[in-house]
Amino acid sequence: MTTTTAPATSEPGSHIGLSEAFTDAMVITRRGIVRILRLPQLLVFATIQPVMFLLLFNFVFGGALGETLPPVANGEYINWLMPGLLVQIVTFGAGQTATGLTEDLSSGVIDRFRSLPMARSAVLAGRTLADLLRNAFVITLMLVVAVLIGFRWQASFAGFLGGVALALGFAFSLSWLMASLGLKIKNPEAVQSAIFIPVFPFVFASSVFVPTDTFPTWLQAFADHQPVTVVANAIRGLMLGVGALPAGQTVTGQVWLAVAWIVGLLAIFAPLAVRLYRRAVI
């Protein structure tokens, strides 16, 4: 839409302090959580699908792949798979931030919110926070199932927790990317196809399921440098130890690289999403 409306960059006299902004964000977070809990299709998507992926990939590929993995996997595919699958699951689920926002846009809910004396940041902060909590829940559930079918971290418990934190951080930064996409595209159906298609090459052409060294060179070049691989490697390094990483990589180096991706995505997409929200005229 080519409106000439200037973004409301500064709103003198908005009278909204930090604590009010926090309360508003909490109200919207609660709304987001209620939505996830009460809409069966969201809850199914959030819980059954990841567990299904975990079980299918492990039992279908595990037997064939177990022997070929680096020794740190201890011959168990689940040990290799689980750290990568955390990244896969948060990447697949991130689109929910976008679809939820487009639904709010087209149903007029965003208009109502924008007419209320609430903090402008609250709708986006609340939505992304609710999605972060959803991810935390899904990851916990997956880890429980993974441990039941044999997953054990091979490095330290602290490393394991660090890996979970990285997965959540990546999920949060993707939420803001998806929020920007949703606010830009606006149409709920269009946004779904816009997200779903690019997600596949990022997740599959990565180190999530297998080491990338058997990929053709051209694909390996992409796979080794894209964020899903970077974050998956960092989590794997933290959970399994340096032996899980391609030659020449260090755990610290991968973690810093993953953090750089997370911070970079946030630095670009959080301000962009806020800007798009302010001028989201539909």
Binding site: H15, R35, S107, D111, P117
Partner: peptide, 28 residues
């Protein structure tokens, strides 16, 4: 235009579409 934040404390809007959440109760 000058002070939308303050104006919003004095106005209410009900748009063309019932902007209520289906998954929350009326009270919520």
């Amino acid at each position: 235009v000058e002070d939308p934040g303050l104006a919003r404390t004095r106005l209410g809007l009900a748009g063309q579409f019932a902007a209520v959440d289906e998954y929350q109760t009326g009270r919520e």
